[in-house]
Design a protein around this nucleic acid. Structure first.
Lengths: 381, 381
DNA sequence: AGGAGTTGTCGAAACGTTTCGATGAGGTGA
DNA sequence: TCACCTCATCGAAACGTTTCGACAACTCCT
């Protein structure tokens, strides 16, 4: 019966000019004792397969002694029901796909942790895909999610400006009943959870202004990687609200990592050595800012102030500890997952668009502007 | 036909004292136009379903015009083959499970990135499970992997001392043909990839000894979370090789995060204020060490030296930048995945046990021991 | 013109579950 | 004792693919 698989015919397949990326050449599957199936258990327990199924899924519907017999047989044969077969017939995967740009960034790691915690509680398994910030890859990964017939998909992370390249595909998925939830991303009509970055950044800038700073730079992320428009907008708002002009040479962009922050800051300082404060798009970049300042011979916070974004665990521990805007990362993940579960239960999530609050955490990296003795009185939101 | 799913009977299920964790209550599946199946495509293209299958999987075996017709039909109907059904019949999932302790730790994030990169290239999808360092949870997650009939499983991260709690389950998986690859973990006979932590730690300590330090502390991870035995062993080796006594009060443990490092260091300083150097089990902890030292009024590197472990991206950017041991995290992931692919192709990986080299990166956080003017001449491996 | 290969397509069985309607054994009330 | 109901179990169909052997239509040779 399983004869066919004992010796795999390695299919000629010589002309491997096949450009079908998802075919992925056949592999051998040689060794391995076959797994027990529901039929094996049924035979062992002397009942019908359907009874075995009942014993597992609706135990109250089978007589206690039968159930015990079935369970014993299952244990004896080390039976583990095949989620594959079950999926096929129930048309439910009990599985979702999570798509993130990059697992190296602690931000996504924490969001994922939140997702995973809730998923576990809901009994859902999770496939994880990374996109490397590449829209083409992102598309492929979304396709993979639908191939796998995931019940739902959580898409994390901003995209470059302009119409969302995934919008059409997402719409198709929704049409076929896949539940979609967005994190830190917005697409018309799709449920979304995000941190109030604009507000957070405004608070950060107002904090700096309150400390007497006037020449405040914004160190943003790469436009191609989602930029940091909301944060930039918050920066602008706060500056303008206080009658401060935003000079183009006060805004720089760099990769969302320490090196990016450092290089951007070096450029900024070259353009205007008079800058006294820096707002970075995330904490990793802020570390780069700190380093660039040190290399320029500026002390923090005496000569210059720095604010980060996210409040990663490291932020409180670097020296000087980082004033930063707390993004509720794990909560974003948990909340997204809660919505997902509600959506899967049939609730319509059409208008849902939740901005979770952000909080300014003042630490050592910000202080009064140099030469300014009247620190104070302007902060607050 | 799909009538059955239009209105889901919410199954009484009142006696939910069922301890079967994996049953996860039924959910509604209401909306959603049905997906096109291979039969729909066959009908549209006026061929048999088996021909559609051929057209996709062995295109050279169907006539070009037929193939074109099939592809056109598929495109028109937005057909996406069901990976589920395919899995059932081929008995291959083209999918693996990756099990990590915690995605918040950048270490695992980078390892995963390596895994994912290679997996994509091999056309494999990946399920990710986290264990929170809990052996019970780990077991559950492994069970989930076999339920899902993953082709292989990559298990990342150390376990507490003593016999590996997962060994038995892993052996069963191997017996049924699941390919297992371990990262930073060793179980008899299972292929494993790891960084040479002992050697790395020895280099770190020798570097410190070379700088004149004699009272060197080891700030290790929590025993319950895998401890850091290899690193501790390297520390011991180096100390003893240089005739330095290892005092019990020079070794402390804490959680693998900044706070853990800080608290452990505070304890160490209380026990022996004479310590001049600290080796931490990872960079996150090292940040905590730095902070604890600062809080104790010690300057780094003038009064005390600190070495971290891993070389996370932040390490080069904090102030002072961290001397640390580079763990080839992404490479660990990539290598594990390469082994996995070879294993899936039928190669026997029985004796494989690869220790990838680690490298000491000397930066600003280490310097000559206070009061020692003869820095030098003893470093090296 | 007839037989032997070759090529392209097809039908049916199989993969391992769940679910629905059917069946039969006991229990109950008249 | 008979009709009726309930309860536990069963058999068969279905889920959406792949694969194997069968088969017809061509091509090629003699």
């Amino acid at each position: 019966m399983s004869k066919r698989f004992d010796e795999v015919i390695p299919v000629p397949r010589e002309s491997t000019k096949g450009q079908r990326a998802d075919s992925g050449g056949r592999r051998a599957r040689i060794r391995g004792v076959p797994r027990a199936t529901i039929e094996d258990v049924a035979r062992e327990a002397e009942v019908a397969p359907s009874t075995v199924s009942l014993a597992f899924n609706e135990p109250e519907r089978v007589r206690p002694d039968t159930r015990e017999r079935v369970l014993a047989a299952a244990r004896k044969l080390r039976y583990r029901p095949s989620a594959i077969a079950r999926r096929l017939v129930t048309r439910r995967a009990d599985m979702l796909a999570v798509v993130v740009p990059d697992t190296r960034n602690p931000f996504f790691g924490k969001v994922f942790q939140g997702i995973d915690t809730e998923a576990r509680r809901a009994g859902l398994d999770v496939m994880l895909f990374t996109t490397e910030n590449d829209p083409g890859l992102e598309r492929q990964r979304l396709e993979a999610a639908v191939r796998n017939r995931a019940d739902g998909i959580i898409l994390v992370g901003e995209h470059r400006q302009g119409p969302d390249p995934a919008a059409e595909l997402l719409a198709e998925m929704v049409a076929t009943g896949v539940q979609v939830v967005l994190v830190e991303r917005q697409v018309e009509r799709l449920p979304s959870v995000w941190g109030r970055k604009r507000e957070g950044c405004r608070k950060a800038v107002e904090h700096l202004i309150g400390l007497g700073h006037r020449k405040i730079a914004f160190v943003g992320g790469l436009l191609a990687q989602g930029g940091s428009y909301q944060r930039l907008a918050g920066y602008r708002e706060a500056m303008e609200a206080h009658g401060l002009q935003v000079r183009p040479e006060w805004v720089a962009e760099g990769g969302f990592h320490p090196a990016g922050g450092r290089e951007a800051t070096a450029r900024l300082l070259a353009l205007d050595p008079g800058l006294t404060a820096f707002v970075a798009a995330n904490d990793l970049m802020a570390l780069g800012v700190l380093r660039a300042l040190r290399e320029a011979g500026r002390r923090v916070p005496e000569d210059a102030s720095v604010v980060g974004f996210d409040d990663i665990p490291e932020a409180a521990f670097v020296v000087p500890s980082l004033t930063t805007v707390d993004m509720p990362m794990e909560r974003l993940g948990r909340r997204a997952m809660e919505l997902m579960v509600r959506g899967l239960e049939g609730e319509v999530l059409d208008g849902v668009d939740e901005g979770l609050p952000t909080e300014l955490r003042v630490r050592e990296s910000t202080g009064p502007a140099p030469g300014d003795t009247v620190a104070g009185a302007m902060g607050g939101q």
